[in-house]
């Protein structure tokens, strides 16, 4: 669980967002791309359709109708209950990440409209500690789930995370139980939950709310799994099959309803809500 070891190298860094500069290279097809053109195509490579990782705020901007997003639970901050220290103190790590991203933790929640349909959103942010889930992420997602049940609104959670956050240990682990329990109540209340999986969705995030959607949809070629590829390799020392743990692989094995290109997300989400809400 937690950050994927294989993804922390320099090759992954260019993947995490769009680097500065006018030009950039697509990590998939290695084409030199005009940065502005990539941004205009929703951060998808115009030549090979590689879906770049995007921050939570960029994601929300792409998904909701312009100007319709109202952020909620924005002032919930992480603490350091365990006084966790590895090579660096967790407290310092948090400060650095907050300065880097301008966010307090790894999820942004709120209400918005998608093609005129009201929806509650919780969007994970891969730029903040690899989108890992600690107490704040668990709490904010749980509150959004509870709000969806109370307000009888559809819920969209966008997963993009390395998993549970090691630095909050068992408290992070318990967020899996907490979010899943809240989803049980939403389910009992007849609420609609759409789970969108983006690259990467692994560990404790996959093993909780991500896999509990009424509908589970995924962006093309996103890495989705429980154990990260590096962990599996370390344990069984077997070459992993081509395309293993990618969206299409999960669709084939029955764990994803359909794979959807970023440009079609809005219309697909609107369609699902139309089928499931009485209007």
């Amino acid at each position: 669980m937690s950050q994927i070891p294989g993804e922390s190298g320099p090759s992954a860094r260019k993947n995490e967002g769009i680097p500065e500069g006018l030009w950039m290279r697509c990590p998939e097809c290695e084409e030199m791309l005009f940065r502005k053109a990539v941004e205009e195509s929703l951060h998808v490579c115009p030549s090979c359709d590689h879906h770049f990782r995007i921050s939570a705020r960029t994601r929300i901007e792409q998904l909701v109708d312009p100007g319709s997003f109202e952020e909620q639970f924005a002032d919930i901050e992480p603490a350091d209950p365990l006084k966790f220290v590895d090579k660096k103190a967790y407290k310092d790590r948090l400060k650095a990440e907050q300065t880097k991203t301008g966010n307090l933790d790894a999820v942004v929640c709120g209400k918005g409209f998608i093609k005129g349909r009201p929806i509650l959103l919780a969007v994970m942010d891969p730029t903040f500690m690899m989108g890992s889930m600690g107490s704040v992420v668990g709490e904010k997602i749980t509150r959004t789930i509870e709000a969806a049940a109370d307000q009888k609104l559809p819920l969209l959670v966008v997963s993009c995370s390395g998993g549970a956050r090691m630095q909050e240990s068992t408290l992070s682990l318990m967020q899996m139980a907490k979010t899943s329990a809240a989803l049980a109540r939403l389910d009992d209340a007849g609420g609609l939950f759409i789970s969108l999986l983006a690259d990467p969705t692994t560990g404790g995030v996959t093993a909780s709310f991500s896999m509990l959607g009424d509908f589970i949809i995924a962006e093309p070629k996103a890495l989705i799994g429980f154990a990260g590829p590096r962990t599996i390799w370390n344990t069984i020392k077997v070459e992993l099959p081509e395309g293993f743990q990618r969206s299409e692989f999960l669709e084939e094995h029955g764990f994803v309803d359909f794979v959807v290109h970023r440009k079609d997300l809005r219309s697909e989400i609107a369609r699902l809500t139309d089928f499931c809400t009485a209007k």
């Binding site: 899996m176 899943s180 093993a207 909780s208 429980f226 599996i232 293993f244």
Partner: peptide, 22 residues
């Protein structure tokens, strides 16, 4: 953590149990 476990939905099975147990 293995190939078969991933193919058959390790994450889903754990998530489902937590939801149902709650």
């Amino acid at each position: 953590p293995g190939i078969g476990a991933e193919e058959r939905g390790q994450a889903e099975s754990i998530a489902r149990n937590m939801l149902e147990m709650s």
